[in-house]
Design a protein around this nucleic acid. Structure first.
Length: 269
DNA sequence: ATGCCGGGCGAAGCCCGA
């Protein structure tokens, strides 16, 4: 079984102890990190490789930054999302790795927030999503097990939000954002969590403010999208709430899925 | 609640996040 997780850590330096604790406790094989807020040179590589992980990093000073950790060696395919050479923000890294469930292609995605919606940030978000859809179309044509995971900054449906009315108009909830997310998913991806968990209350983010965690005022914005070949291997997917309740927590908590070779054959039998 | 927290930067106070 290969366990693949995604976690927006909101600074890898501020979160190092929490991240090391969780890696040791949960033992994921592959981890997609977002908002590391670090360039590659100052990423705590020694500490993380000490737990047996190989690294693929697309870093940036102060903002953004994504990484892939994997217990099997990584071959980097892309350090940025194709389609705009002028885009300087570190929000995408893609690699392939040979696991016991076969060769997997994984991408760590930090999709732009897009607020405020009357600024060019919203246009940047929607443009970024268009580029992601175009790239994902090409990835699907490869017919490989592929996982596009990360902080999508999109609340897909009303049930993914504690109070839809409070989020109406927000860039995470605007019809344009949700429509773009559906267009991507509808190319043929499986939302791993929703394959195993129906209904409301499956949140991955709780604001630091207003006691959101204590009140469970959460939203689901971190997603694992699986190509058909990856979905055939899917055996489980969950949100791990434990890290959000720890001291000095990130405002996001990890989401993970498990893939197993021969899962489709087992399901059919 | 267009920032109540929290992080980066850098050494006060602003930028940014969702």
């Amino acid at each position: 079984m290969v366990k693949i997780a995604s976690w927006n850590v909101n600074s890898i330096k501020a979160r190092l102890a929490n991240v090391l604790d969780w890696l040791s406790a949960a033992g994921p094989d592959i981890v997609l990190l977002q908002e590391i807020k670090s360039v590659e040179e100052s990423f705590p590589a020694l500490e993380i490789s000490g737990l047996g992980y190989n690294l693929a990093i697309s870093g940036q000073k102060s903002y953004n930054g994504v990484a892939i950790l994997s217990k099997t060696p990584l071959e980097i395919e892309h350090r940025a999302l194709p389609g705009d050479e002028g885009d300087e923000q570190a929000r995408y890294v893609e690699a392939v790795t040979e696991t016991q469930a076969g060769v997997l292609r994984v991408a760590s995605i930090y999709l732009p927030n897009g607020n405020p919606v009357d600024s060019d940030k919203f246009g940047y978000k929607l443009g970024w999503m268009k580029r992601l859809e175009a790239h994902a179309r090409g990835l699907l044509a490869l017919e490989e097990p592929t996982i596009l995971g990360g902080d999508y900054n999109v609340i897909p449906n009303d049930e993914d939000c504690y109070d839809p009315a409070a989020w109406a108009g927000d860039a995470l909830f605007r019809p344009e954002s949700r429509s773009a997310f559906r267009a991507l998913a509808n190319l043929g991806f499986t939302d791993a969590l929703r394959a195993y968990n129906a209904g409301p209350g499956a949140y991955t983010f709780w604001d630091y403010q207003g006691g959101a965690w204590q009140k469970d005022n959460g939203i689901r914005i971190d997603h694992l999208l699986l190509s058909p070949q990856a979905a055939d291997l899917l055996v489980e997917s969950q949100i791990d709430r434990a890290p959000r309740g720890k001291p000095k927590a990130s405002d996001h908590t990890p989401i993970w899925c498990a893939l197993e070779a021969g899962a489709a054959a087992d399901k059919a039998a």
